[in-house]
């Protein structure tokens, strides 16, 4: 199993919390947005607590996202596509298959309205498709603070991220086709974050905001998301994705369940696992099938 953690740190010095989280959950790949912790301090902290040695995988020119991993540098391919708000590269864990890893921190609602964020998702989705073509691989996982909710147009638009809530529907309908004479095809993503809305399982989202007070507002948001292409669905189980509320020592939420942005970050971290082990097919099994 390859184990991932994404967290928007909101610029907070949370190295001790990250050390506990990475050790407690056996994190292999740590992805951070709004991280103001210097590389040296981060590595000292991460490597003091758990097994393996974390190292930073630097981008070429991007500045808003940080990637640390216990996997060898050689497991990561070169950066394929990059912008200030995303980094796309390939990852092949030891003994595993190659995937396309997309990290993102898209424009904030504070700076951009929903329509502008939708437009940005069009370009982001296109960069993902370009990267998949360049890598010759569509086993893609998108991770990050997308600053749109799973139900927003940017996530559902076929020219946007085209991400649906039900994995069986994704497998059945991928790719979505439009037009009769000139058929356009749009690859789908599965968005497991839909299952994390509401209070059936706490917390009710990854980000809570009640200060702008518009009349239509869910208050709880899931801006922090994981999206999977159909080729990875048989390597993912719903139980292997959690929005974390504790580092084992401290609660990351207040008593009302909302993220404790004063003590930690106003976003909650996401933990998930993918079974990326190379599968060996036995000729005897194939002949039986």
């Amino acid at each position: 199993m390859a184990t991932f953690l994404f967290w928007n740190l909101c610029g907070r010095p949370l190295e001790p919390v990250l050390r506990r989280l990475t050790a407690r959950h056996g994190i292999d790949v740590l992805m951070l947005a709004e991280c103001a912790i210097p590389e040296g301090a981060m590595l000292n902290s991460l490597n003091a607590g758990g097994p393996g040695t974390f190292r930073r995988l630097p981008p070429v020119a991007s500045q808003r996202l940080d990637l640390y991993s216990r996997f060898d540098r050689l497991c990561f391919g070169p950066v394929l596509k990059e912008a200030d708000h995303y980094i796309i590269r390939s990852l092949t864990p030891p003994g595993g298959i190659e995937i396309v890893l997309v990290m993102a921190h898209l424009a904030s609602p504070i700076r951009r309205d929903l329509r502008a964020r939708h437009s940005r998702c069009i370009g982001f989705a296109q960069a993902i498709r370009d990267a998949e073509q360049a890598a010759g691989n569509d086993r893609t996982v998108v991770v990050g603070d997308l600053n749109v909710n799973p139900f927003d147009d940017a996530m559902l638009d076929v020219r946007g991220l085209n991400a649906l809530a039900d994995s069986r529907t994704v497998l059945r309908k991928d790719p979505r086709r439009f037009g009769r004479l000139q058929v356009e095809e749009f690859r789908l993503f599965y968005n497991p974050m839909w299952s994390h809305f509401g209070d059936a399982v706490q917390p009710a989202g990854t980000y809570y905001y009640d200060k702008s007070n518009p009349e239509v507002d869910p208050l709880w948001n899931i801006y922090d998301q994981v999206l999977l292409r159909p080729g990875l669905l048989d390597r993912f189980r719903s139980k292997n994705l959690k929005i974390l509320t504790t580092d084992g020592l401290h609660s990351l939420t207040r008593s009302d369940g909302t993220p404790n942005g004063d003590g930690f970050s106003d976003h909650l971290p996401i933990w998930f696992q993918l079974d990326l082990r190379r599968r060996v097919r036995h000729a005897s099994n194939e002949s039986l099938a």
Binding site: V60, S62, V79, K81, I122, A127, A134, D157
Partner: peptide
């Protein structure tokens, strides 16, 4: 989606293979 045109301005280098920076 609204019928408008969208153009990304990408930087790249022949030495960096498939790499582009938007």
């Amino acid at each position: 989606p609204d019928g408008s045109f969208w153009v990304g301005f990408n930087l790249y280098s022949p030495a960096l293979g498939e790499y582009t920076y938007r």
